[in-house]
Nucleic acid binder design. Structure first.
Lengths: 220, 220
DNA sequence: TTGCCCAAGATCGTATACGATTATACGAGT
DNA sequence: ACTCGTATAATCGTATACGATCTTGGGCAA
């Protein structure tokens, strides 16, 4: 795995550190779908016992990133094409709602922060880092809604599909995405919430059609 | 607590049994919001060690029923009025979608099953059991959508508010709910999905207005 | 060969033990 | 009396140990 734990967060307890490290490894593709996660092995990697590892795995299972088979070990979860489609369908219902709820609470500061993230995306070449910044941008648009449960639900759904997205996306898709981001921000600035919601739906749809065409998914 | 473990499910592993028992106790109100959940105490109650108890608590935290404070113990989570409202808002977006997706897949068997559940609700006096049957009915309407992630999300959201609902609901509300259930089923049978969705939204809204009026919530 | 069975190794699941952290009670100093 | 610090108890967090379960590979019979 090549991950050294200790540097990430020394204040949290061990199981949260393990969960953070494993989550990051899964999202970065260092641990791919179907990969077995043996407790002893992970414990040895991080120089801890199995107990915090097990708790981390339970946490990640709840987030949908890991599948736990009783007495038979854990694997990095995989998604069928239908499941990817399902998750995008849910996001398509939730994210415009989040944007709509955030809209009345937007401040100039939110727009500046969004623009700052977009500028960072422009100069980003690493796809994994791009995915992180992509989420940061969307989060910046949803956070003013002040709906923490909704935000966490969307984040979890996002995490579950983004790790497959980075394998299929190409440069032209990235450019389209960025143009949509900028237009989205402009529409929000201009006070056109309806236009923004329509565009957001479009923005969310494009990757899912791409998935369907390439049918690039791991073992279902 | 007065809960005897062993009888519930002997096939699952210990941590799942504990999680099931604790979840049930929380939903039934035997463990109320803010109640501290001490690991040693729970372990003693169930005649097990703390390890499976800890894993159960992590699981329940992910479901939103428990709050884990590092090194300071777990408590049964409570919801502010704003959070209850937020969760109903999310359900209002997701449940009509689930119904809409289920609609093309409905079979006569689904309708019969729904009716069977409604008949059971008619004769039910225990509010906790009523809540369970209420969920079973809604699940019967959503399951044909074949969207497991959506169903689980809705179920978790439902669990998070239903335990407060049972404290505020009264007989007249129950009758209204049951009438709406029957009409909902009739509309689905008649093929009127639009009417069904409108009614479902109404059905979901009535309790949340009730909450707002009574402002009955635990320590926020 | 093919299929079944069983033994050995690998891995999981949890009880026990103990160090670490937090809460509580008490007494000294102001 | 009030605050603060310290001792003690309560509780949490994790390492170790070991029994339970699953996987694997080799031997035997059909």
């Amino acid at each position: 795995m090549g991950l050294d734990l200790g540097d990430i967060q020394r204040n949290k307890n061990t199981s949260e550190m393990i969960a953070t490290a494993l989550r990051s490894a899964i999202l970065r593709g260092k641990l791919q779908s179907g990969q077995a996660l043996r407790q002893d092995e992970i414990a040895a990697q991080f120089n801890v016992s199995k107990i915090p590892v097990r708790e981390a795995l339970v946490q990640l299972q709840a987030e949908g990133l890991v599948k736990l088979n009783p007495s038979r070990g854990a694997v990095v979860s995989s998604l069928s094409l239908e499941e990817v489609d399902e998750i995008y369908t849910i996001r398509l219902a939730l994210e415009p709602m989040a944007l709509r709820r955030a809209f009345p609470n937007f401040t100039p500061r939110d727009f500046m922060q969004g623009e700052h993230i977009l500028n960072k995306i422009d100069h980003e070449t690493d796809l994994t880092r791009w995915a992180e910044l992509n989420w940061e941008f969307h989060e910046a648009l949803y956070r003013p809604a002040k709906m923490p449960h909704l935000l966490r639900t969307i984040h979890d759904l996002h995490n579950n599909v983004v790790r497959f997205l980075v394998h299929t996306i190409d440069r032209s898709q990235l450019d389209i995405s960025q143009r949509q981001h900028r237009e989205l921000l402009a529409l929000c600035r201009a006070g056109d919430i309806e236009g923004a919601c329509v565009l957001l739906q479009e923005h969310l749809c494009s990757p899912v059609t791409m998935f369907a065409n390439r049918s690039q998914t791991p073992n279902p």
